[in-house]
Amino acid sequence: MRPKSYSIFGGHGSKSGVEHAAEVIFTVCGFFAVLAVASITLYMIISGTPALFKVGILDILFGTIWMPAAATPSFGILYVILTSIIGTALAILIGVPIGVMTAVFLAEVAPERLTNIVRPAVELLAGIPSVIYGLLGILILNPLMYKIELKIFAGSTTHQFTGGANLISAVLVLALMILPTVINISESALRAVPQHLRSASLALGATKIQTIFSAVLPAAKSGIITAIVLGTGRAIGEAMAISLVSGSSVNMPLPFNSVRFLTTAIVSEMSYSAGLHKQVLFTIGLVLFAFIMLINITLNNLLKKGEESHDK
């Protein structure tokens, strides 16, 4: 902790009204974030829970039939939840290895001149609006997937053709979208590894690659895990990029099925839903919010653990 400076007029009696006002205003600003999180949590719970009790917690969370517009509507969101979990997991499985390897390239292998070109490019990737990813997904990935689908399911009578808008397309878009997050955070973690670890490993006779994979990467483990958790948060919360790419009908999350994620369910039906249907959409929002809070708390614990080990 740095030493604090105090005004020579710092006594309680000499503070003018303006000084007091400034302190109070800044304190209020400081607590605004707390207020925001508290009210978001409160409102998500208030608007998400009524449907839980009206439909029944088990029916809504573990039901598999989604027919909100039928005469006897059915609101089972199990497939939607499963799609979000499986889709995010697959995106992490594809995105994290590529991202970590790119970070290794930037931090350990590439000459400095190349790093200075690639890193801004990665930052730019993070700044591209998510709808543009969606647009490219529709026009590039979906036709490709449709061709593959036609080949695999040629002659099949049970398969519902989706025109390429399926789980794989959505997963690929998501994997692409988490890349910048994973690359940036893993790279700073790798750069924070002390140089003497590398020197010691090289001096013991390990090759450069052995050093990277058995000394540097394990030392940067906590940073890379943070990157994975942040990437998970980003993937599970992404809506606009995948809402049209994933096909958007509620199905089992199988690779070639048209699927619906938690986020895309909200985006695609919010505009025309009413009554109980709308309340169920808010319940979906609540489920998503619960996942996000879980990820945030995990992240907070990870960061705290990292700080503690640095302090020692």
């Binding site: 998500m44 948060g233 996000i292």
Partner: peptide, 23 residues
């Protein structure tokens, strides 16, 4: 405050959208 600021940064935009719509 720092925890809530982190949390706020981690909340996906669709949740902000829902909250803004309701509140």
């Amino acid at each position: 405050i720092e925890f809530t600021t982190e949390t706020l940064a981690g909340i996906p935009s669709i949740i902000f959208g829902l909250f803004g719509y309701v509140f």
